[in-house]
Amino acid sequence: MAMLLTMDSAAATGTRKPQNRRGSYAVGQVRRERILNAALLEFAERGYRGTSMARIAERCEISETGLRHHFGTKDELLVEILRERDRIENERRESEGSPQGVAGLEDTVRIVDHNSRTTELTRLFTVLTGEAVTDGHPAAPWAVRRYRDLRRTTADSLRGGVASGELRPDIDADRIARQVIAVMDGLQLQWLLDPESIDMAADFRAYIDDLVDSLRTR
Rank of each mutant, 00 (worst) to 15 (best):
M1Q: 07
A2P: 04
L4T: 03
L5D: 14
L5M: 14
L5G: 13
T6S: 13
G14Q: 01
K17T: 11
G23M: 04
G28N: 09
R31T: 08
E33N: 11
E33H: 11
L36T: 03
F43E: 03
E45L: 06
E45S: 13
R49F: 09
G50Q: 10
T51A: 04
I62S: 01
H70Y: 14
F71V: 00
T73K: 07
I81R: 00
E84T: 04
R85E: 11
R85H: 14
E89H: 06
R92S: 07
R92C: 04
R93N: 10
G97F: 02
G97Q: 04
V102S: 05
T108E: 13
R110K: 12
D113F: 07
S116Q: 05
R117F: 08
T118V: 13
F125R: 04
T126R: 11
V127T: 14
E131N: 02
T134I: 08
G136C: 07
R146M: 11
L150W: 15
R151E: 12
R152E: 09
S157F: 10
L158F: 02
A163F: 08
E166D: 00
D172A: 01
D172L: 00
A173P: 02
R178M: 09
A182W: 14
A182K: 15
L193G: 10
M200K: 13
A202V: 06
D203M: 15
D210I: 06
L211R: 02
V212D: 01
D213S: 15
S214Y: 02
